[in-house]
Amino acid sequence: MVRINVDLTSPVPAYQQVIQALKIEILSGRLKDGDRLLPIRELAKILKLNPNTVAKAYYTLEDEGFVESRQGSGNWVKRRAPDLDGLRRSMLEGEAKAFLEKAFSLGATIEDVRRTIERIASHE
């Protein structure tokens, strides 16, 4: 089951969040090559999103090469993976940036952040 949570209060638009989540699923290998994505309608129903929103996400993923859409049968994870490492790295950076923004808005310093990360990581 795909784990996607759309945060309604986030400044990130919903379709972006969907894209991010799907990319994570694909990059982490939970969604393998040749797997079929949920039909637009189903995903929209589950997430209570406008199907257009889900459609937009799927099209963007297709543009970026993660997914291919086959006429009449839906959207499939693409067999030939793109530069996964580079992608992984840029996604990581993106996630880190978002996390840091949030941390700083809470008033944390770089030191606080580093200590917190180390503490949590040591418990994982």
Binding site: V6, L8, R41, K45, K48, L49, N50, T53
Partner: peptide
Amino acid sequence: LETVIEAMDELKTAVIMVNHTLSDTAQIPE
């Protein structure tokens, strides 16, 4: 909501909703 979403996808129905509170329907409207 699922039924409405299905209609939106399948029939491309234009949906106009009057709502007091949006809660979980907040992402549906464009």
